[in-house]
Design a protein around this nucleic acid. Structure first.
Lengths: 367, 367
DNA sequence: CTGAAAGCGCTTACAG
DNA sequence: CTGAAAGCGCTTACAG
């Protein structure tokens, strides 16, 4: 395999017998070029296969047209869906995408990642690492005076920061209300790691809904899993042993619901006859479980897309601000409009009803 | 939110009372700086929060330290695992990663993607789009004289190109041999889209193994799915209807195996009593199906990691070549060593035996 | 040990 | 309509 060197604008100019400025004008589709000059230059460009050097352009124009996305656990369903949305929207808007993993999302050690992205001159950052424990501690001292705008995904919208998130509290409510409506009263829960924001919100949605319905919750009714199917299986065994009166269990993701299903089956019980089950995520496989799984569908691709839209508007505001500064205008107006922090965007999930949670009376009809 | 402008080397130099060259030497840990000069500069760097501009560095040093990865179907299990491996190894080697999606992988329209990556001056490309139909047609005229090395993933290793792939043919053989060893003889197949290389290899592995065993294959024994669980369900219905004598089915990914399981259950049959099942992929969920699924585990993360290692060695070879050219040396040696194309790297999969394919006699023991 | 000069590939004023 | 000059932020020789 043989590698050619990159063709430069200077070579094109020489071959076409014009100056580099003129070549630049042609590349950028400026109107002020004589028709036949344009044609001549375009021919040379085609012949040499010239491609403008985006790095040189970035340096002079002070715009990298690049966004950074910081993700983690990409081999899980949720994070990869979000990344797909982020990529789609970025590419639609003409941004290149620099991908960074935070391999230990629970640590708050973000300096190397931020420094890497900033040194690459990204124009904005999508922070798609889940909120775990205090892994947002850095925000207060760092994010406030970062050089570029940053959008946070699936994080607690407390601190007046731009956040786009699935409404996990609502999802938890929806799942629980659905079970109540179907006539179930003793509803157990297998949660995700409760120090993760998403897990905690789903848990609170479940808890508050039961409390509002006047149902008291016993400790033995809750098991804290780790999102894995294996933990769902373990949780199921414990709940069935400690709390045999349960008539339903809300597993707070589909993988744990699968482990739960497996354990319930092993115990010789049938779903939903002896125990109703609701999951969370609506993975493509969940419709094909035995029985098909009722679950909460998240529109994660939209979370990713929305985040990029929001980021772009922040970037534009920043540009306005820069312009105002540079022009030494009275900047108050620009500052006011640019520092306007929109309400956090919560994206509502959707209840997908399948057989695993059917009402008892309906079950009888079916047979 | 307020954005600061980037600090430049010139500002650091001014503040520290030295020239920019000296600052540069400090940043790059050159030895030839007086100890207290170094300290003074480092202090200013710390105080101003100076970060070298990677774009300017790339331009002058002619090295972007960036790799491009072209992927598709990231919301599927396989592709996202591969990406994880690619990212891990890239970051270990100090490369930034530019992510590009080919949203329609079946089209061979790769010019925009290649041009984008090349204009971004990536030092190498990982082509992680699956081979579908003739979506590799562009290789013959384009890849051979690309400016940068490119590694192909999960592609037919025919054309003396650098390829890293899972050994799907071997995987197909392993699944089928396992079923034969367990005493099954009438083994149906639900394949992926047969114009995809991976699907086709698994199919051929299955077919050849049966032929070698002296078993004739009837047309009604094969169904072509599209990787989705829904297609697995459809396929199962057809196979069960047209070929009722089947005692096993090899579903060539786990999602289709799930659809198959669901349909078999609906038909009132039990697995593996009436029908044994083997899948392909070993998704984390597959151990928790009812019954747990025997499947072929691919080491996709290793595929990604290996690809990046190979890419790096190609990049180094290219550097050697450049040096040789530049020094006007007798380039034959360098050329010879650099154009050395290694054998395609096939990564062997692994059989994971679970209950869905247990031997009939074993089943009797279990009850 | 330190700095003035040149230049990576491009674009933005400015002058003709 | 066209081009000479300056410069984006950095590094690489070269000279002291």
């Amino acid at each position: 395999m043989e590698f050619r060197r990159q063709v430069t604008i200077a070579q094109v100019a020489r071959e076409a017998g014009v100056s580099t400025v003129t070549v630049s004008r042609v590349i950028n589709h400026r109107p002020d070029v004589a028709p036949d000059t344009r044609r001549r230059v375009e021919q040379v460009i085609g012949r040499l296969g010239y491609q403008p050097n985006a790095i040189a352009r970035s340096l002079i124009s002070q715009h990298s047209h690049t966004l950074g996305v910081v993700a983690s656990r990409l081999d899980y369903y949720g994070p990869s869906r979000i990344l797909v949305g982020v990529e789609q929207k970025s590419s639609e808007l003409g941004y290149a995408l620099l991908l960074c993993m935070q391999h230990q999302p629970e640590s708050g050690d973000v300096e190397p990642i931020l420094n890497h992205l900033l040194s690459q001159q990204v124009e904005g950052v999508i922070w798609a690492v889940p909120e775990i424990g205090d892994n947002r501690a850095w925000i207060s001292e760092r994010a406030a005076h970062l050089q570029v705008p940053i959008i946070f995904l699936n994080m607690d919208p407390h601190s007046n920061l731009p956040v786009v998130a699935g409404d996990n509290y609502l999802g938890g409510q929806m799942a629980t209300r659905h079970l109540l409506e179907q006539g179930y009263r003793k509803i157990g829960a297998i949660t995700g790691p409760i120090n993760e924001w998403e897990a905690c919100q789903r848990y609170l949605g479940w808890r508050d809904t039961l409390i509002e319905a006047g149902i008291t919750i016993r400790d033995c009714q809750v098991f804290e899993g780790d999102w894995s199917a294996a933990s769902g299986e373990r949780g199921a065994r414990l709940l069935l042993a400690d709390c045999p009166e349960l008539d339903a269990i809300f597993a707070m993701n589909d993988q744990m619901a699968m482990g739960l299903l497996s354990a319930v089956n092993e115990a010789g019980l049938s779903v939903p006859r002896h125990l109703a089950i609701v999951g969370y995520d609506d993975m493509p496989e969940s419709a094909f479980l035995l029985p098909p799984l009722t679950t909460i569908r998240q529109h994660l691709r939209d979370v990713g897309r929305t985040a990029v839209s929001l980021l772009q508007s922040r970037i534009s505001e920043g540009a306005v601000l820069d312009y105002a500064r540079q022009a030494q205008l009275e900047t108050n107006d620009a500052l006011a409009s640019a520092s306007f922090s929109p309400d956090p965007i919560l994206i509502a999930p959707e209840l997908v009803i399948r057989q695993s949670s059917i009402r008892r009376s309906e079950q009888d009809k079916l047979r």
